[in-house]
Amino acid sequence: MKQQEFLNIVLPFRDKMYRLARRILVSTDEAEDAVQEVLLKLWKGKERMSNYKNPEAFAMTMTKNYCLDRLKSKQAGHLKIVHSNYQSPHARLQDQVEANDGVRMVFEIMETLPEQQKMIIQLRDVEQYEFDEIAEILDMKPTAIRVALSRARKAVREALIKKYNYGVS
């Protein structure tokens, strides 16, 4: 497979990989690194790529797995503590300066969700994948995804309304 052929396949969903990575890892730098790593792995295994029915779902699954692994090793290495101690949530939102406080709250709430709920909301409400595609990416049954999605959306709603009632910070 030629470079250009490879890039033509991966570029359309590269940003989706990045956003999923960013949702899981929170840090923009780490999300960029994750995308590079996963693309490199895809490039090395490019001969097999034409065998996959859906390269995008495959790439998203790899991104998910890579990020969850990163998260695990980060937690093992205490890096997470450093992260949450010294970086305010607002610092991570530099690229959303134009967003209002309500939108910021949505970002913050998303960060507090468990990983699985984060990923499902990301894939459905942000990337607008069909349930079948999400099922393929996360290796879950579509019915289980529906249930988890409902739970995640309700968790976001509850937190959001609570914040609203306390007044927009």
């Binding site: 956003r19 949702r23 967003a99 709250m105 949505v106 942000v126 990337e127 976001v156 709603r157 959001l160």
Partner: peptide
């Protein structure tokens, strides 16, 4: 805000 938030993330 919720839907706008998703829009920003996108």
């Amino acid at each position: 805000d919720l839907f706008a938030g998703f829009g920003y993330m996108r």
